[in-house]
Amino acid sequence: MGLKSKDLVGLHHVTAQEIELILDTAAPMKEIIKRNIKKVPTLRGRTVVTVFYEASTRTRTSFELAAKYLSADTVGIAVATSSVNKGESLKDTALNIAAMGADVVVLRHPMAGAAELLARTLDVSVINAGDGAHEHPSQALLDLFTVREKKGRLAGLKVAIIGDILHSRVARSDIWGYTKMGAEVYLAGPATLIPPGIEKMGARVCGSLEEALEGADVINILRIQLERQQQGLFPSLREYSRIFGLNSDRLKLAAPDALVMHPGPMNRGVEISPDVAYGQQSVINEQVTNGVAVRMALLYLLIGGGA
């Protein structure tokens, strides 16, 4: 059994069985990362191109390391140094990259639907590394992997996602992923940052942070961007922090062994207090390690089979 699609555009159209397969495949990949010699020949001769229309340190490095650990060649294209600034369309840029022989294109793009456009255009595999406010499936998969590893299960867990849901592709992919795996997702954030109809995706919207945290097994804190305050979506970061910031007092509302997660980069002292971010229950650093393992699994499942 493998993945049905040549691409990973989002978790919306991925089945629970496929998610299970990806997580199962990621476990041995994590073993490779822990070795002294972090290299297996699985994807030797294959090429992974990362195309990033948005700045990102973590996700891009994670994909590139994942490819390198599997012996694939990697090339990174960043917006500042590419022909994107010469007015070339996304479609033409991608066709050029594919014509050069890429096996996988990893795309980060500020606009929703960009990965789907690329997947439709190209014959090679496309992995969505975040498209606007749509999806960021590899982030959600690493979240699921982390929780499953710590808790031994996903079904029946209460997961709280806190913050700017409106602009968050991580939240959307997390909602699809957690609910498909049988967990319950509770959302909390300023009313102006809760998008209408999000309940239809299977999540529940809470009236307060406290309500979402009550008895939670997993707490996903989202990054709040200063830009949103400048857009008039909430009064101030100070007030945001007072109403929606996770601190050690509020953490006590959750289950005693609740996991604290954050997709990064963090605004410490705003959406999460430093003592919680670095506390006993935080798995934020492990999320990063697991991100590499999950991305290795994805590359292997998408292009490793027939090689």
Binding site: A112, A133, R169, P195, P196, G197, M201
Partner: peptide, 13 residues
């Protein structure tokens, strides 16, 4: 249109 579909697609409504 702003609604559950725009929310799901991540497109501004």
């Amino acid at each position: 249109h702003e609604g559950d579909v725009s929310t799901m697609l991540g497109l501004k409504g």
